[in-house]
Every structure is written in C-alpha cells, then in structure tokens.
Design a protein around this nucleic acid. Sequence first.
DNA 1: GGATATAGTTAAGGAGTCTTACTAGAGGCG
DNA 2: CGCCTCTAGTAAGACTCCTTAACTATATCC
Lengths: 400, 400
Amino acid sequence: MRENGAMPASDAVDQPDQPWNRRRLRSTNERLLLDRLRAAGSASRAQLARETGLSKPTVSSALAALEEAGLVREAGTHTPERGRMAVLYAPDPSAGYALGIDIGRGWLRIAVADLAGEVVARSDVRNRARTSGALADLVVGTARQVIAGSGTRIEEVAHAVVGTPGVYDEERRRVRYAMHLPGWGRAGLFDRMREELGIPLEVHNDANLAALGEYSYGVGTGSRLFAYILIGTGLGMGVVSEGRLFTGAHGGAGEIGFLPWPGRQKPQTLEDAVSGLAVVESARAFGMTGQLTAKAVFDAAREGHPAATRAVELEGERIAHTVAAAAAVLDPDLVVLGGGVGHSVDLLLRPVRETLRALTPLRPKIVPSRLGEDAVLLGALATALGTARDVVFERRSTVS
Amino acid sequence: MRENGAMPASDAVDQPDQPWNRRRLRSTNERLLLDRLRAAGSASRAQLARETGLSKPTVSSALAALEEAGLVREAGTHTPERGRMAVLYAPDPSAGYALGIDIGRGWLRIAVADLAGEVVARSDVRNRARTSGALADLVVGTARQVIAGSGTRIEEVAHAVVGTPGVYDEERRRVRYAMHLPGWGRAGLFDRMREELGIPLEVHNDANLAALGEYSYGVGTGSRLFAYILIGTGLGMGVVSEGRLFTGAHGGAGEIGFLPWPGRQKPQTLEDAVSGLAVVESARAFGMTGQLTAKAVFDAAREGHPAATRAVELEGERIAHTVAAAAAVLDPDLVVLGGGVGHSVDLLLRPVRETLRALTPLRPKIVPSRLGEDAVLLGALATALGTARDVVFERRSTVS
DNA sequence: GGATATAGTTAAGGAGTCTTACTAGAGGCG
DNA sequence: CGCCTCTAGTAAGACTCCTTAACTATATCC
C-alpha cells in the first residue's frame, strides 16, 4: 500500500505513534461523523449523537466545524413520528474531486468523480500513440480536457490514480513487465505526467485496480477475500483482502502470468497458454481457418462451430488451473473473471467449473465481471476517491 | 484474523467507530507509552516525552497510572553526560502470561511466556494419544503442568493459542482437513479444552503459526511479505503480510496441499507429490531398498547415494513448483523452507533454485528455517502474546 | 562556587467533552 | 383550545486531561 508516487496526507489518519492531544481528539471525532454521514447518506444531529455515542452538543459543534470547512451541508429535513422537525446533514460531494485514468493498449479512459463517487465527466479515446512520450502527452491532454469538461478547477482535484499494465517500481520510477505497450518501461514517465498535471498521481497495476473496482462497484461487494482474473491481451490477477488491495512485497502480487504451466514440450509460463492469443492458436490447431481473433472464436463457439467449441473448452481448462492455484494459495470466497473475455464468460463458466472439480476440492464461487471494460477505470476512481477524501479532510483546518 | 475461539478484548483498541471521549484519549496515550517502552526496553520519563511528543507532566501522570496498574515498573537509573540522574521505567514482564500449544502428529509442545516474550516454562511430550479425546486430555493436563511449573497462577495466563494441522472452522467449532490426526475433526474439542483450562483459547493452522514464529523470532523479521513452506508429513504454507497473518476468506489460505500438480497419469494434488512420504516413494522407484524414511533418504543423499540423490533432486524440483506458484500469486520477498525437511534444506536449496530459474522470472529469496521444529510453538506464543498484551492492558482500569 | 544542562514536579490555563437544564417545535388528546 | 408528551437542538457550567511555564533537584564543567 505504499506504491503511491506522491505521498498523500492520508497517512496522518492512522499513525499509532502520534500523541493524542485534544486537537487530534476533535479531528478524530469529526472524521467519525463524516464517515458515518457518508455511510448513511444523511442524518440529523440527534441521530448522529445516538449512533456514535457522542453527546449532542459535541455533535453540533463538530458538525458546525465541518460545515464551516465545506465538507458537510444541510440536506433537507425529516419529521419524526412526533416531535420537532430535524435538520438533516449530508457530506458535500463537491468538496473535492478524484481523477481516474485507465491506460490500456487499445483505449485510454479518464474520468472525474466527486467525493460522493459520482462520475461528473468522462472521456474514452483510442490509444493510437506510437511512443511512450506521445501516450504520456495524450494522457495529460485528455485529463485536462475531462477536468475542464467537468466544470471543476484543477486545484479541486485532490488525487489521481493511474491503472496500467505491469508493475510500477517506486524506486526506479518506472513500470516493469509492461509487455504490450512499447517503451512504457521508461523511467520518469509518470513523474512527468504528475508534474504537468499538478495533481498527486498514484500508479497501480490494472488488474489490481479492476479488482478494487469490482469490489467497490461490482459483484465483489462484501467479499472478505476475492480475486479478479483479468484475461485479455495479457493475463493478470488482482486480489482484494478485507477491502484493501493485496499487493505483495513489491507490488507484484497476482502476476499469475508467471505461473509455471506444464506445456507439452518444455516449461513455459501460463500467460502464453491462457491469454487471448492462445484461444486463437488452439482454434487454428483444431482446424479453424481465416482471419481469427479471440472474439471471432468465441462467436463461432456460440454458434456451435466444433473446432471453436473445443478451443473454448481448452481455454476453460486453462483458466481452471489458474483459479485452482489462486484458490489453494489465497482461499478466496469469490473469483471474478473479467477482461477481454468478459463478454464470453458464459461460454467459459461450465468448462472452468468442471475442470476445477477434477483438480481440487477447493471450489470458490466463480462469477463473471459486472463492470466489464469499466472495471479498471472505476477501480482507479475508487482508489483515488479514498485518498482524495483523506486529503480534503486533512486540508480543512489549514484552509479555513 | 477472526478465527479465534474466544473473542479477545483486543478489538477495543482500534475500533474506528467508537467515540473518542476523554477517557479514551488517556487510554490511548497510556498505550502509546507502554508500546514505546516495550520497543525501547526501558526509558526515562523525559526521554518518553521527547520521543512521543507528549508533555512531561502528561508522561509522568500516565506512567504513574501504569505503574499503579502493575504494567510498568522502575528499572534502574541512567546518568546522562551531565545533568540529573534519570529514573528508568520498563514494562513489567510479569504483568501477565501467554500460553502456546503446538499439537503435532508426533509431538505435543507447550510453553508459557511472560509479557516480554521470555519462555518461563516448557514441556515437550510425545503424542501417543490414540483418540482425539485422549489427545485433548493430554493437552489440558500438560498445559496445567507447564503453568504450575512456571510458578504462575492460571488467572495470570491471559491468552492461549493452539497450533494444529488443518483449518479451524469457527462456525462449526471443529477442524477441517486434518488428515493425519485421527478423529481430530470432531466438533467441540477445542471448546472442551478452553472450558477445562479456563483460558481464552484461539486455534490456528500450524503452518500459519510457524510463519508467524519465523517472522517474530526467526529469519522473517522485517519482511514485508513472506511465505513459510512447511514440508513434513503434510504440506502447508503460512503467509505473513505486513506483520499480520494472511488467512484468506475462511482461514484456508496457504493450503497448497490442494495445488493441482501435473502427475503423469491423472491430475492429483501436490500434497501427494511433495510431502515426506513422496521422497521415500521416489527413492524406492529409483532403486533404493530397505526400511526407508524421509530422513534416511536425505542422509543417504548426503553421503552420495545415487538413487537417494536423484530422489532429493526430484523433491527439490517439486518444491520449486510450489514456490513458483506462491511467488506468482503472492510476490513474497522471502520464502522460508521448514518442517520435517528442515535439517535437509541444505541439500534441497540448489535443486530448488535451479528448477525455479527455469520455471519463472520471479525468484524470491529462499532460505531455510532458523527455528526448525520450534517454529509452530514460538508462533503460537507470539500470537498469544499479542492478544495477552491487549487483554492485560484493557484489564488494568477495571482491576484497580 | 557559579554556569549550564538534564530530570522531574507544581501551578495555571486552555481545549474539548459531558451533564444537566432549558427552549423550540410538532403532534395527540381531552 | 390548552395542555401534555415527545423529539431536536442550544446554553451554561463542571470535569478531564493536556500544555505551557516556572520551578526544584541534581549532575558535570570550568
């Protein structure tokens, strides 16, 4: 959880080695109220006092401070069965904004969301950049446009998160293992973007963010430990444990592309055997001809083409091996399949489950992604939002 | 982290949804000082004030309260270069005790440690119990003896942790997957022990505890994410992430016995292929004869016996597959090999590393266990200590 | 012996919370 | 309609705990 480029102020929140003086006490209580409001949507002061255990005067005073700082605002009224009318308070979504960026081989997706998580502007553009420099420029330019289009000022964007293939190496300031983006491993690329945008920028692996996206907005909600397997041009896995991203020692957790795979001739890695291209290859081996893409093979299988069907079966078996490895090591309660094959998961589920039954007694629930192509972007937004909320909260006292 | 049998009071410490009233403020500061003393060994009041950022009067008053509660005591003096002599304070190790229990197929090991982590009594007895009931009785009896031998009263033992093969199912109150202990899967066994002992009892997987032991007292210290692979009668893995046990959704993380393993004929699980018995089997297949044990094969290999050497090589290759799977999924910075093969890791390291090099570009550091057979027991103690410290601290105000 | 530096205490003041008591407003009911 | 009851919210003072500042105690250095 320490691979962010710019150190966000969020750390101040739960540092156990800090003295707890009165100011900190007040701050903690304000935070408690804000989080509670966020969870409940809106609430009256009396209600908050009951729920948090704080006294009514304390709630009133803390809430007044939050309103003063612009983090909270009145949001209508509520009349109880009998008794006086209550004034409701709610978090002010426009207290700050978060930026999410999904850099994929085919598409670049950028969105701005307010603190409530509502997307207020979004842009999807084709990634036609030939060089890493051009791609970086495209990212910065598009981000500026999206922010402008959202009607917010750049200073209001408190935090940004970028999703990219590969693993960001914090020390060397570059991405490793980004096979499918030429030149993307250059050092300092993200520093440049951060500088040109003027927004704290955090870089994460795309599969990890997709997992977090699916956890926050999709089918993973409430799971204690779930794994998101992203099958597309490459192969990746993101793991969310107790609501937090599980990144491993160097941010490389879930790089299941490197799982050993028992090939017929020699050991090769799983990525060669499971990624989108492999489906095409095996379909060809089974006798399909013509200009094939993974999508074409799946479409053919859906119409009953025998070679395509067998290729899909084989792909399912391969994915099952991935799931089996993840299940044995991680013990997830949910496995989500997503990525390029997202539209074809219906075809894959049966062979995956059948193979899994033969492989291992551990059989976690396997479901298709709900967010599809948007998982990475939404995950980036969710992550950026988390930090943005902290940043905006920390800022409140110094600004006013 | 929620598979403990008795809910420890530790949860009160960092519940973010609790109001932060004045009492809590004081409590947090006392805890801060206590933890700091624990880390430093001993310190003067002025020193603590400097390090924590609290004022001198606050430190004095909080420390007086801690001393009153028996958690802290004077521990000599220290004379600075110049200036008045300082009175040093240190945590009182005898403020409470923790009990660690390692239930293995061959041995039962039980130890009591004081709050400083010092083992004050220990007993290792052969596990000759034929039934699960007899084993439970043996555990309770031996535990009572050890506690008596340590010169402490049972009420002073604040928490106990048991390590056992298999996964403890909190809901059904029984152990699952404990293949090698007959009848050990019976429900309510641990509830009985807890009741008869009168100590809060927490149950964990033995490989998990071994990992925690190696993290706390062995070679894993400071690792961000490390995996402990326990190879013995069975096969297990424990994962420690950021100092905390990684248990998965149902406490089954690291059950790599269930990893699919490409057998020659049909898919079988890895446990069959890697556990101690497998070494014997393959040695026999390579032509060794006689009454073989895993230890005998390793000894023969050490003396150059060709069949034994080949069997060990094969074992190394198999372990490498395990490591490769763990590395791809978890991205550890350290992998520790331990368990029954602990004494033979020197023979295995080379083949493991060589095979790994061919399998995957990810190559985490691989080292042998430092604690050997004691890893599980020490891990249980370390875990129990963590909770015991919390319990004793929480108790302080109500007792006095 | 005085200057200086460190350890620790005492006294005064301040910040934030709690308790208690009150006012404000909305129905129910005789 | 007036009164009662119930809920929301405010006001005032007590209480707790922290901090600052000043002070005492004790050691070394010159």
